Computed example of a mutant assay.
Amino acid sequence: MKEFKVTYFFDEEHYIRRFIYMESQEAAEQLIQSERERYISFTDSRGIYHELNTRNVRVTQISEYFRDQ
């Protein structure tokens, strides 16, 4: 599994970041596309629970993430 960083931007200053594990970039993109225009929920790496209405997102970025070990 690969780790991907997903960043949801609301404007130039406000964003939420999420990390997901998927087999490929294409699979990550399909997941994000399937979540358009709906509510999603997730817990971030700090243990903070988020509910996000993707309808309010202006830009979504997906990139493979490589953690420093």
Results as ranks from 00 to 15, higher is better:
residue 2 K to E: 08
residue 3 E to Q: 11
residue 3 E to Y: 09
residue 3 E to C: 08
residue 3 E to F: 11
residue 4 F to D: 03
residue 4 F to K: 03
residue 5 K to R: 14
residue 5 K to Y: 03
residue 5 K to G: 03
residue 5 K to C: 07
residue 5 K to D: 01
residue 5 K to L: 07
residue 6 V to N: 02
residue 7 T to E: 08
residue 8 Y to L: 05
residue 8 Y to T: 04
residue 8 Y to K: 05
residue 9 F to C: 08
residue 9 F to P: 03
residue 9 F to Y: 15
residue 9 F to D: 13
residue 10 F to Y: 15
residue 10 F to A: 03
residue 11 D to G: 04
residue 11 D to N: 14
residue 12 E to I: 10
residue 13 E to Y: 10
residue 14 H to V: 12
residue 14 H to Y: 12
residue 15 Y to W: 13
residue 15 Y to L: 11
residue 17 R to W: 01
residue 18 R to W: 02
residue 18 R to D: 05
residue 18 R to E: 15
residue 19 F to T: 10
residue 19 F to H: 15
residue 19 F to I: 07
residue 20 I to R: 02
residue 20 I to W: 02
residue 20 I to S: 05
residue 21 Y to P: 01
residue 21 Y to W: 06
residue 22 M to Q: 14
residue 22 M to L: 08
residue 22 M to K: 13
residue 23 E to Y: 03
residue 23 E to Q: 09
residue 23 E to M: 04
residue 24 S to W: 01
residue 24 S to P: 09
residue 24 S to F: 02
residue 24 S to G: 04
residue 25 Q to D: 10
residue 26 E to F: 00
residue 27 A to I: 12
residue 27 A to Q: 11
residue 28 A to Q: 05
residue 29 E to F: 07
residue 29 E to L: 15
residue 30 Q to V: 12
residue 30 Q to F: 02
residue 31 L to A: 07
residue 31 L to K: 09
residue 31 L to Y: 09
residue 32 I to A: 00
residue 33 Q to P: 00
residue 34 S to A: 14
residue 34 S to K: 06
residue 34 S to L: 01
residue 34 S to F: 03
residue 35 E to C: 10
residue 35 E to W: 14
residue 35 E to R: 14
residue 36 R to Q: 13
residue 36 R to C: 00
residue 36 R to W: 01
residue 37 E to L: 02
residue 38 R to Q: 15
residue 38 R to M: 15
residue 39 Y to V: 14
residue 39 Y to N: 13
residue 39 Y to C: 08
residue 40 I to W: 04
residue 40 I to F: 06
residue 40 I to E: 01
residue 41 S to H: 15
residue 41 S to K: 13
residue 41 S to N: 15
residue 42 F to R: 09
residue 42 F to P: 08
residue 42 F to Q: 05
residue 42 F to C: 06
residue 42 F to T: 11
residue 43 T to Y: 00
residue 43 T to M: 06
residue 43 T to H: 02
residue 45 S to A: 07
residue 46 R to F: 09
residue 46 R to G: 05
residue 47 G to P: 08
residue 47 G to D: 07
residue 48 I to C: 06
residue 48 I to R: 05
residue 48 I to Y: 02
residue 49 Y to K: 10
residue 49 Y to T: 00
residue 50 H to M: 03
residue 51 E to M: 13
residue 51 E to R: 15
residue 51 E to W: 08
residue 51 E to Y: 10
residue 52 L to R: 07
residue 52 L to H: 07
residue 52 L to N: 07
residue 53 N to S: 12
residue 53 N to A: 11
residue 54 T to N: 06
residue 54 T to Y: 04
residue 54 T to V: 03
residue 55 R to D: 06
residue 55 R to V: 03
residue 56 N to I: 00
residue 56 N to G: 12
residue 56 N to D: 14
residue 59 V to E: 14
residue 60 T to F: 00
residue 60 T to K: 11
residue 60 T to E: 10
residue 61 Q to Y: 06
residue 61 Q to T: 14
residue 61 Q to L: 09
residue 61 Q to F: 05
residue 62 I to E: 00
residue 62 I to M: 01
residue 63 S to P: 02
residue 63 S to C: 12
residue 63 S to M: 10
residue 63 S to H: 06
residue 64 E to I: 08
residue 64 E to T: 09
residue 64 E to Q: 11
residue 64 E to D: 07
residue 65 Y to H: 13
residue 66 F to N: 15
residue 66 F to Q: 15
residue 67 R to V: 04
residue 67 R to H: 10
residue 68 D to T: 13
residue 68 D to Y: 12
residue 69 Q to D: 12
residue 69 Q to I: 15
residue 69 Q to R: 04
residue 69 Q to A: 13
residue 69 Q to N: 08
